[in-house]
């Protein structure tokens, strides 16, 4: 039986009046790459924030290494966060620090290593993402792709067990995208780290994901290996995979009939 690092059990979550998730369950196998896909606005980033304990579900439970995240007190949660890391969509690099200091940040905060050991570790992490030469640059001097790679180097600084990628390919040119796909795969294999990739870039992620969940309409509408997902007979899954404009997810946002609205306005 596969061991799960993260288990999301029957969670329901709403923001104000708006229901985001309605009783959904997702298991993240240890040491594998799991993709969570779905249309924009479905709350994929919210899922990562729930796993990270930044949000608390209304119902249901989320466990990390068997321990319930919503039930953790602050210090236990912060202790557990040292074993997870998150690559934010914007990179979220600290703009007042160089790339080097960004990567060294967590090491300086959480370890008592000497500055020379930290230097070796930081340079190794930057070498992994190909940015050793950019160590002394400021985040504002980096291109979008480089910023995300720098953020990735920061995310792996403490050798986490879980890395959560929030839309890692969004807004990237084909070369940067290829580099990121390669890095995610390489990190997963080399460090045996568990990866959760939240994205709507179907082709890129299906090439590297070991398991895929597709979310839509507040539910999990399909899950399986990449091959199983591609062969799915669900119209919704196929609409998403093939990028069709209209289908079970309608092109039009719900509204009154256009005739009624236009004619009604004129009367």
């Amino acid at each position: 039986m596969t061991e799960h690092l993260v288990e999301i059990q029957n969670i329901t979550f709403s923001r104000g009046e708006r229901l985001i998730y309605d009783d959904i369950s997702i298991n993240i196998p240890k040491g594998k790459i799991t993709a969570i896909m779905g249309p924009s606005g479905i709350g994929k980033t919210t899922m990562l924030r729930l796993i990270g304990g930044q949000l608390v579900p209304d119902k249901g439970d989320i466990t990390f290494k068997g321990n319930s995240i919503p039930a953790m007190n602050r210090s236990t949660l912060y202790h557990n966060r040292k074993s997870m890391s998150m690559l934010f969509q914007s990179g979220a690099l600290f703009t007042d620090m160089t790339v080097y200091d960004n990567v060294a940040f967590a090491l300086r905060e959480h370890t008592h290593l000497s500055e020379s050991v930290i230097e070796t570790l930081v340079l190794l992490k930057l070498e992994t993402v190909g940015l050793r030469g950019a160590a002394q640059m400021m985040p504002s001097e980096l291109s979008g792709g480089m910023a995300r790679r720098a953020a990735l180097a920061r995310a792996i600084a403490l050798d986490p067990e879980l890395i959560m990628y929030d839309e890692p390919f969004a807004g990237q040119d084909p070369i940067s995208m290829g580099v990121l796909v390669k890095l995610i795969k390489a990190l997963s294999e080399a460090l045996s780290v568990t990866s959760i990739v939240v994205t709507h870039d179907v082709n890129e992620v299906l090439n590297i994901a070991d398991y895929v969940y597709i979310l839509a309409n507040k539910k999990v509408i399909g899950h399986g290996t990449a091959a199983q997902i591609k062969a799915s007979d669900s119209a919704l899954v196929q609409q998403f995979l093939q990028g069709q404009a209209d289908g079970p997810v309608p092109f039009h946002y719900p509204a009154d009939a256009i005739q009624a609205q236009i004619l009604g306005a004129k009367q």
């Binding site: 930044q54 998150m86 934010f88 979220a92």
Partner: peptide, 14 residues
């Protein structure tokens, strides 16, 4: 807005 505060939280820094 640039998620730096969230990223601090996720790095276990309050």
């Amino acid at each position: 807005a640039t998620e730096q505060l969230s990223s601090l939280e996720m790095m276990a820094v309050d």
